[in-house]
């Protein structure tokens, strides 16, 4: 067991709070989507919250995050304000990407949050590059790259894995294996379904983690970071999880049985931690109500913030395609 593992009551309640914030926020998002306040795609993280919360709780502010289009949870757990995330999903200028990215492209430089990349596996080489910059500039930061198991089939996954080991880049690759790449089950897309084993083909240390257990994820992340820092090598962590909702807002879920979803929901990360805390008398209903009330207020404030945001003037349509000025002397 890792020495840094924190299983004290206060910390665990905080982890529950973080997971519940994501859960309730996204539940509200489905409603806001139905009301057409959020448009485009909406990829929900519901069911997978333990991964983002577990990983983020171990990171330092200088560590960098590269995420995917299913990144609301990562952004919230990293510390982006709920208001700036929702405003982004509303397309307003007070959004974390000034409204230019939407749900799939949340960015925040202050939080070292390098985005929501919506090209499957597209973020992996970028993460390796950020890690290269850290290494060359003697920065202690680790780059943490989240991606789904669908990315493992892409060439960029293999290219990035190879380069990361070859060049000893401090990257933590976090594979969120929710079993389906959109609607295609892992067994239908991979010849080797033990994904952690793929890492060994590149000489990269790896582990499989129960992605429905926030304590396990935190512990595994803590060990992985230690290994990355002591060995100057990347690490691959496969978190087994399940998304309770469809791939995106347009998913009839014809590819899986309702019973399968129900079974996974029973071992969901929120309910699991909640029950454990109650069974061990760390937590009572009143405290849970308090937590829910607090989160509800945060969501309401976020909606108010987002709705109050200005629309970008169409006169500024082409802003931020290029930088306004050049570095140093021109020409």
């Amino acid at each position: 067991m890792n020495q840094k593992l924190r299983i004290d009551r206060v910390h665990l309640i905080n982890q529950l709070r973080q997971m519940l914030r994501i859960r309730r926020f996204e539940e509200k998002c489905t409603q806001l989507y139905a009301e057409e306040k959020i448009r485009g795609f909406l990829h929900l993280y519901i069911g997978e919250e333990a991964i983002a919360v577990g990983v983020m709780s171990v990171l330092s502010p200088e560590d960098q995050i590269v995420a995917t289009y299913r990144e609301h949870g990562h952004a919230l757990a990293r510390g982006l304000s709920m208001g700036s995330i929702l405003a982004e999903m509303f397309g307003r200028t007070n959004g974390c990407s000034r409204g230019r990215g939407g749900s799939m492209h949340l960015f925040d430089k202050q939080m070292s949050f390098y985005g929501g990349n919506a090209i499957v596996a597209g973020g992996l080489p970028l993460a390796a590059g950020l890690a290269m910059a850290n290494k060359k500039q003697d920065r202690d930061a680790v780059t943490v790259c989240f991606f789904g198991e669908g990315a493992v089939a892409e060439g960029e996954f293999h290219e990035a894995m190879n380069l990361a080991v070859l060049w000893k880049l401090p990257v933590l690759f976090v594979c969120e294996n929710n079993g389906y790449a959109m609607g295609t089950a892992l067994s239908l897309s991979e010849s080797e379904t033990n994904l952690a084993r793929k890492a060994s083909g590149y000489g990269m240390a790896s582990s499989q983690v129960d992605g429905m257990n926030v304590v396990d994820v935190e512990s595994a992340t803590s060990s992985a970071l230690e290994l990355i820092k002591t060995t100057s090598q990347p690490y691959f962590m496969e978190c087994k999880t399940y998304r309770f909702r469809g791939h995106s807002s347009f998913d009839g879920q014809l590819y899986r049985e309702k019973e399968e979803i129900r079974q996974w929901e029973e071992k969901g990360p929120v309910i699991r931690l909640q029950n454990w805390l109650k069974e061990n008398n760390h937590f009572n209903e009143d405290e849970l109500d308090e937590l829910e009330t607090e989160i509800k207020a945060e969501i309401e404030a976020a909606i108010e913030f987002a709705e109050g945001g200005a629309w970008e003037d169409t006169g500024d349509l082409c802003k931020d395609v290029y930088s306004p000025t050049r570095e140093g002397e021109p020409g």
Partner: peptide, 21 residues
């Protein structure tokens, strides 16, 4: 020197540029 992986090393270059190089 890079391996033969255009997407990989160009992506690494883009990431490295974001990282200050």
């Amino acid at each position: 020197d890079t391996p033969l992986c255009e997407s990989g090393f160009v992506g690494v270059g883009i990431g490295a540029a974001m990282g200050g190089l």
